[in-house]
């Protein structure tokens, strides 16, 4: 059983990841449940996607303390959802800050030292600059694909298997840039 929690800000394109992971599970003949957020939170709110892959899945929702890996598309969101991480789990974070409204209006401060905080709690942390990597791939929009590549590597999926899943998911004309992004994400350290 693999529990993958994908967190970010509404509008960041976290739903692509769940579609790729769904195809990964189908290709492997594994049971899979994905739970997404639609509606209000998509308007710039905190969003979470639960992905569970294994022999037999019941709940579509991951328990607190039970995620093998958390993929954070944004730093504060990674910090917010970190109590979902399993002991010895890994948290992969895109090095990006998006200010929430309480910070913009000056009611609260954006937390400083997010990565130190996560490390100090004994969690395995991998920081990825997905935005820059995506730019280098030639399309800033594939930052989410870079994150999927990093996810695949760190959860132990084979490179060719995740490439197959992306090929099944992404439209032809965008395939090449997405495969490049997967590769860069998979190799990111």
């Amino acid at each position: 059983m693999t529990n993958i929690l994908i967190v970010g800000v509404g509008g960041q394109g976290t739903l692509l990841a769940s579609r790729v992971l769904g195809n990964y599970a189908i290709n492997r003949g594994l049971d899979c449940k994905l739970s997404e957020v639609h509606g209000m939170s998509q308007r710039g709110g905190s969003v979470v996607t639960h992905v569970r892959i294994g022999e037999k899945i019941y709940s579509p929702i991951i328990n607190e303390g039970d995620a093998d890996i958390i993929i954070g598309f944004e730093k504060l969101e990674a910090l917010r959802w970190r109590h979902y991480l399993k002991k010895d789990g890994i948290i992969v974070v895109n090095d990006q800050e998006i200010m929430p409204m309480p910070v913009i209006v000056g009611a609260m401060a954006y937390p400083v030292g997010v990565f130190d905080q996560i490390r100090s709690e004994g969690m395995n942390l991998l920081v990825i600059n997905a935005t820059d990597i995506a730019k280098n791939c030639g399309n800033i929009k594939v930052a989410n694909t870079v994150m999927i590549g990093a996810l695949a590597k760190n959860i132990g999926f084979k490179r060719e298997d995740i490439i197959e899943a992306v090929t099944n998911t992404v439209p032809c004309k965008l395939l090449q840039v997405n495969l490049l992004a997967i590769d860069k994400g998979y190799s990111a350290k």
Binding site: S41, G44, G45, E64, G65, R80, H83, P100, P111
Partner: peptide
């Protein structure tokens, strides 16, 4: 496991 409630919330906008 409890959530960290000290963080700024991120309501939809």
């Amino acid at each position: 496991p409890v959530a960290d409630n000290t963080l700024p919330v991120r309501p939809p906008v």
